[in-house]
Design a protein around this nucleic acid. Structure first.
Lengths: 165, 165
DNA sequence: CAGTTTGTTCAGTATATTTTGAACACTATG
DNA sequence: CATAGTGTTCAAAATATACTGAACAAACTG
């Protein structure tokens, strides 16, 4: 007999623990808790689940579930599968670590990198026609920023290579 | 003549832009905005700054500044330097990307990785004496989690190697 | 087409995080 | 040892973020 901790929910003890694992993951990656929960419940399930399955198993709202699924889809952490004879969309967890990492990087990190690049460019321009305390020193620092960005950019491809399939 | 945007502050236009760059960085890394601001102002300054310098330049509170400096110190993003004949602590930005990344990883990421490892172990144990829908499938999934962790662990050393000094 | 089922959107609410500022501890200094 | 200078802590306030649920849109169904 399994005690329930906190709110009732339809998941077994082991399943709950797996979901919690992904909640922590989400936390580290700066994603909403519900996104972790949803990926977790899909990961742990041996069959595809529809929106309402996820919602019911986790005891969260339809809105959160819909948005969570959208986010997960946006970086390829889940796939939507077609089930003949059912109008609902069914979802399964993508289990290729490489795909997930690469999707996450492309969708969630890359935009920041790009805007960072623009920002440094902008600083360079400002530096042309604005007084600063120590122009040479400042120029050196902007160079350093640009160098950091270059190196940061080179990391992802390597990580993907290393992390394999 | 420089217009001021929003609140008055003691930084020039270029300096403000550099600080904003690091605020975005902080954002991506899931650190408080003030931590980004403080690193930024130290990075851009050509001389060491004390707590009250940072506070005054950024227009933030003493408490935030103290905590921000502590966090930055905790992963080696800044160093505290001794200035003879002055009771105050002075701080400078560490500019070795490698040191910063490595410190950040060790202090902010590693603990999560460790607790993740424990969590997977715990799930394995639970799996021993709790019923689940499909034990074989579940075991396979826990194996996958463990495999992911191994691969994730191998990333940092490589990133450090790649990112150079 | 009227009624159902499914999924999305978004304004309002709830929650979590960050910041503030006043109280405190510590040390130096006269 | 009283006072001033420096940095820390933490409870309360401010802010940012995520979640809810009702209203909606779209697509099927009889």
């Amino acid at each position: 007999m399994e005690h329930s901790f906190g709110k009732e929910c339809a998941l077994g003890l082991v399943e709950r623990e797996v979901v919690e694992f992904f909640v922590r993951m989400a936390n580290v990656l700066n994603l909403p808790r519900s996104v972790g929960e949803i990926y977790g419940v899909l990961f742990v399930s041996s069959k595809p689940l529809c929106l309402d399955d996820c919602r019911a198993l986790l005891g969260i709202s339809k809105g959160s579930t819909s948005q969570g699924l959208r986010i997960l889809r946006s970086f390829g952490a889940i796939r939507t599968v077609y089930v003949p004879g059912d109008r609902k969309d069914y979802h399964i967890a993508e289990t290729s670590l490489r795909k997930i990492v690469s999707g996450f990087a492309k969708e969630q990190i890359q935009p920041h990198v790009v805007s960072g690049k623009e920002r440094v460019q902008r600083i360079r321009e400002l530096l042309e026609d604005h007084k600063v305390d120590n122009p040479d020193d400042m120029r050196e620092k902007i160079d350093m920023l640009e160098n950091w960005q270059k190196r940061a950019n080179s990391v992802l491809p390597l990580v993907l290579k290393l992390i394999g399939k």
